[in-house]
């Protein structure tokens, strides 16, 4: 399959360094402390946050910080074919959940809430590539909506490498090319990488290029997330008759 045409267009018409359309909504579930949806192209994720609240079990809680728990689930209809096999899927699911949890643990100022627990719920409605990145972004929005203080904004994106071209934000079709794939979650203001996972053999120079592109991608996503949060706050302020500059 040809993933990049000679004109430099990808299968869905994007340029190699182009993100898919970003869309998000903050505060979608009134009963949750914080909630958000995040769409990037056809990938759709809902995240909810409950807490911080007293930890369920004292054994798990920590005396100097809050613990973060993450329940991740992927809808049966999320991917192209209805999911059937469970065994391997669950191992993958567990890993995704733990990655989202660890990313947020590093972002939330957990030391402000000793003995507390913060519950994250992630539901993937549609999976069309860059799912984990979308989950991290959605979780960040939900945590922000819950008013939990964070160290920095975290934003995530993926970069693939097919036909000697680094491709930003790869979709499901491009994943089937089985090229190397880099996921980067960045603290955008501090410029520090929180999550880096790379799969597939790639030479170090190429990877350097991919990482740079991913960094730019994360910053672009971060900018969008910040903008959306500001808009959300402004709307709230207007509704309540407050004025925000």
């Amino acid at each position: 399959m040809e993933f990049v045409t000679p004109e430099g267009l990808r299968r869905d018409g994007r340029r190699p360094k182009e993100l898919r359309q970003l869309k998000c909504e903050v505060g979608v579930f009134p009963h949750a402390d914080g909630s958000a949806t995040f769409n990037i192209g056809n990938t759709q994720v809902i995240a909810t946050v409950f807490g911080p609240r007293v930890a369920d079990s004292r054994g798990e809680s920590s005396t100097d910080r809050a613990i973060v728990k993450c329940a991740y689930s992927e809808s049966h209809f999320a991917a192209g074919s209805r999911r059937q096999r469970k065994g391997r899927g669950d191992r993958r699911t567990a890993e995704l959940a733990s990655t989202v949890r660890k990313a947020l643990e590093e972002t939330i100022l957990v030391e402000l809430f000793p003995k507390a627990q913060i519950d994250l719920g992630i539901q993937v409605l549609q999976a069309d590539g860059s799912v984990l990145a979308a989950c991290i972004n959605a979780a960040m929005l939900a945590v922000a909506d819950a008013g939990i203080p964070m160290r920095d904004m975290i934003a995530a994106t993926t970069v693939g490498y097919l036909e000697s071209t680094p491709l930003l934000d790869i979709n499901h079709t491009e994943r089937t090319g089985n090229g190397p794939e880099l996921l980067l979650a960045l603290h955008v203001n501090q410029d520090k990488a929180i999550i880096i996972t790379e799969e597939g053999a790639v030479n170090p120079e190429t990877l350097e290029g991919m990482a740079e592109l991913a960094e730019q991608g994360c910053k672009a996503v971060g900018k969008f997330l910040r903008q959306s949060l500001l808009e959300h706050i402004q709307r709230h302020a207007t509704v309540r008759g407050l004025t925000v500059k």
């Binding site: 660890k102 996972t197 030479n203």
Partner: peptide, 16 residues
């Protein structure tokens, strides 16, 4: 000497 995988799934941030 290709990079096969990188795992940094947790912990403190690190500049690229």
């Amino acid at each position: 000497s290709d990079i096969c995988a990188i795992r940094k799934a947790s912990g403190v941030g690190i500049p690229l």
